[in-house]
Simulated scan of single mutants.
Amino acid sequence: MGALERDPHLHQRGRLRRLERGAAAVRAAHGQLIAAPEKFAAPYFGEEYTAYARELLFAADALLLGRKTYEIFAPVWPNMEEIEGEYAVRMNTLPKYVASRTLTDADLTWNATVINGDVAKEVARLKEQPGGNILKFGTGELSRTLLENKLVDELHLWM
């Protein structure tokens, strides 16, 4: 394991675990949150990053996304299996829970279920179910809600 994985100040990604486990993903650069990592992060996506991202994804058995992250991921990941292999297959086959005030289940096409209403209560209910980790990608209001309600067990930052 390299320095990036050992130093908790350099690596933050949250994991919402079921029962005692759980995850949230945040990327930061130069002290600022970056909303579009594909625009800045490619040079940092080396072997260490890839191995760690794979470890987190394959330890999860569900994904938690906010509406904006879902809307960014859903049209892209189904087309990535040929390029990204098993990682994309795993990303595409995991069930996804999407926190949104505006989307409905009918709007979701990527193996996803909408969470509306009391998101904190619903995520707490999901965490009580047996299974592996719930991995959360993205930043923003959903992250804030999860942190305020003490629903994130691990937080890993990529900087």
Rank of each mutant, 00 (worst) to 15 (best):
E141A: 05
M91K: 04
A106I: 07
A36G: 03
L103Q: 08
E47T: 13
A3K: 12
A88C: 02
L63S: 02
P95L: 07
A41Y: 07
N111G: 08
R6C: 04
N133Q: 14
N116V: 07
R90A: 10
R125D: 02
Y52V: 12
Y87N: 08
M91P: 01
L151G: 03
F137A: 02
V119R: 12
L155W: 09
A42D: 11
G117I: 12
A60K: 05
V119K: 06
L135Q: 13
M1Q: 13
F45P: 00
P95D: 14
T104F: 02
S143M: 12
E71A: 10
G117Y: 14
E154M: 04
A23Y: 11
E38I: 03
L33F: 15
R27Q: 10
D107N: 06
R144M: 03
L65V: 00
K96H: 05
V114D: 01
A106H: 14
A106P: 07
R54Q: 13
L146R: 04
A41V: 03
A28Q: 14
W77F: 09
V76G: 06
E154H: 03
E128I: 06
D61H: 08
V114A: 02
T139P: 04
L33K: 08
G2Q: 05
M80N: 11
K136P: 00
V152Q: 06
V98I: 05
P8W: 15
A29N: 03
E86W: 00
D7F: 03
